[in-house]
Amino acid sequence: MHIPDGFLDTKTWITTAVLSAGALGYSVKKSREELDEKQVPKLGIMAAFIFAAQMINFPIAGGTSGHLLGAALATVLLGPWNAALIISTVLVIQCFGFQDGGITALGGNIFNMAVVGVIVAFISCKILSSLFKNAAGRNISIFIASWLSVFVAATMASFELAVSGTVPFSVAFPAMAGWHTLIGIGEGLITVVVVNTVTRMGFVDAKIASVRGQRDERNL
């Protein structure tokens, strides 16, 4: 759901750019408190993985495709502050390097996917994991959090299109919600599989894993 140039009016792209800049500034501050040198390569690897995965559009229905967003994936594995920086970095590289997502829409895209997507994934996963504590419950929590992150990000995009006067919300929202209900299912499935796979490959520290309610494995 990378918004191109021309869909957002000036007030909307400036507002979303300012909100995104503020949120990222705060994320940098929080990351600085938590991030140590050992985690640095993990951020790079997660960003690289999400960039690659976002290239893989999967067909859904009616001649439409979707791809992984990755907000929930990065949030579950590296926490919300790092996740916001990772998704933003991917979006900036896609925008300037690959002409994917407009330059004036960059603030809006970061706001929808790296800020709102991450916040939704973080809060919903936290609430759900406290309700379902076993391994299956954790996978269900990750699936639902992933679906919600895509759905709410798409809703934000609809709202921005409406505020910009591009298309009324009453028309944009049902259309966006319909497709992203399906794309969100893909997001949920991919996120659950990747989280489990990379955890087995030693991506998550024993310390962090136990904090986030996973099995306390010594992998070092």
């Binding site: 759901m1 990378h2 918004i3 290239m55 893989i56 559009n57 999967f58 067909p59 001649g63 439409t64 495709s65 979707g66 791809h67 798409a154 995009a157 966006m176 497709w179 992203h180 794309i183």
Partner: peptide, 8 residues
């Protein structure tokens, strides 16, 4: 990868 348009 699918070349169909994405959701948006």
């Amino acid at each position: 990868a699918s070349s169909s348009p994405d959701g948006l």
